[in-house]
Design a protein around this nucleic acid. Structure first.
Lengths: 234, 234
DNA sequence: CCGGATCCGAATCGATACTG
DNA sequence: CAGTATCGATTCGGATCCGG
């Protein structure tokens, strides 16, 4: 079982031996949003085989990245350790880097609540904090997110599918803007599709609120993609 | 061959499909130091099977991460594209994260010139730039590096094993400090071994220069590890 | 030597079924 | 809910071989 070793005494290899295993960083990605139970992870990673999920959870645990926490009312959740949480900037940076090569969804591709949540965190522009505090309700597929952007940061809550609100209570009150989008949400964030155009051609549907707020959304959540885009994944 | 897909429309998955394949990020790590030929990569990654190296080079190339550049005087090198070079902060962050779990070298672990070069870049503290500009010659195993730390940044050159000085000429002049170390170099950088102690017990050997400069080295290159270290890789 | 391609056994992964 | 067990499909590792 020495087959995982890259045979080098080096920080990069030590990191990769843990987190470059297939599915490992996606488990971390979902746990960055909050503690999750086994079943939550399975649903958030629809294509992971259950034996691999088990194996990874065990490996990440003994690597000190995650921790098993029994719940008072039966059941248990997995959560990141402080050391595991240090992976957050890395996962976000990978999300930014990969954003440029996303292309259009392939057959069977899904958007999960957790992936969209970290995507928003990835795209979040702290320097847009001097815009008026705004709360958005965002529908993509059957995922509904509530994002509150203010001067003291970004807070994202999952309204549907409903996850246990372990981390803290959901923001209350009416959102300033409620809208629904498909994969075109990526074009908005990339800046290659003007909000006005998106509303005009129906790829984004305003459910409630001032459509002009979509411009503020586009300024708050942005990942610039290079002019000459990287080859798209097929 | 749809077996690589994680089935999600998400930046993180798009990135991982390219970069989380076994050996892929290590190829990127070595190319971060400079263009390399096939044989250089094979020597810098002693345990990579050649078919895997070929496959990864092809994949990274068609993913727009690396590029094949024919050399005028016969031969060819691989180099990062601008898009590939954007992985640098990610690789360095992974190196920092993995540093905490390196432990002691396992049997057969080697330290390569490229891995040590990016390790120095990983540990480099820009805020130590107000220290006097200093150049070090560092011996670890049969790797000899020349590191010049000054107010305008860090420059590392490989003196042995000699790599083609493609990126720019090596710094000239005598280094301020020449010293040799084993794996204990990690303890110096981690701050868990005082330079004076290292010299006293012989784990670091001063070849030339003022031993007190080792303290400056330790201040310039540092990766703090948490008090409660993460479980070590076995 | 450089830059791979080919072949084969070993280990891992994916899909599904099943269990306390 | 939280995983094992099983088994075929891929991938990886190790070695050898080949054309310039």
């Amino acid at each position: 079982m020495t087959t995982r070793s890259y045979g080098q005494y080096c920080g990069v290899t030590s990191a990769l031996e843990v987190v470059a295993e297939r599915w490992a960083l996606l488990i971390v990605r979902d746990l960055l949003v909050g503690p999750r139970r086994y079943t939550d992870l399975k649903q958030g990673l629809p294509k992971i085989p259950t034996n691999i999920l088990s194996t990874r959870l065990k490996e990440l645990q003994e690597a000190g990245v995650i921790r098993r926490v029994p719940l008072m009312n039966c059941g248990l959740v997995y959560e990141l350790t402080p050391y595991g949480r240090e992976l957050e900037p890395i996962v976000l940076a990978l999300g930014r880097w990969g954003f440029a090569r996303m292309g259009t969804p392939r057959d069977g591709d899904v958007v999960t609540a957790d992936s969209l949540t970290v995507a928003l965190r990835t795209a979040w522009q702290p320097d847009a904090a001097d815009l008026p505090p705004t709360s958005y309700e965002l529908h993509v597929g059957d995922v509904v997110l509530r994002a509150d952007a203010g001067p003291d940061g970004l807070r994202v809550a999952q309204l549907a599918p409903p996850a246990p609100p372990v981390g803290g209570r959901a923001p209350s009150g009416e959102p300033d803007l409620r809208f629904a989008a498909g994969p075109a949400i990526r074009e908005i964030i990339a800046g290659t599709l003007a909000p006005a155009d998106a509303v005009a051609d129906g790829t984004v549907h305003i459910l409630e609120g001032d459509p002009a707020l979509l411009d503020r959304f586009a300024a708050t959540f942005r990942i610039p993609v290079p002019a000459a885009p990287a080859p798209i994944r097929t």
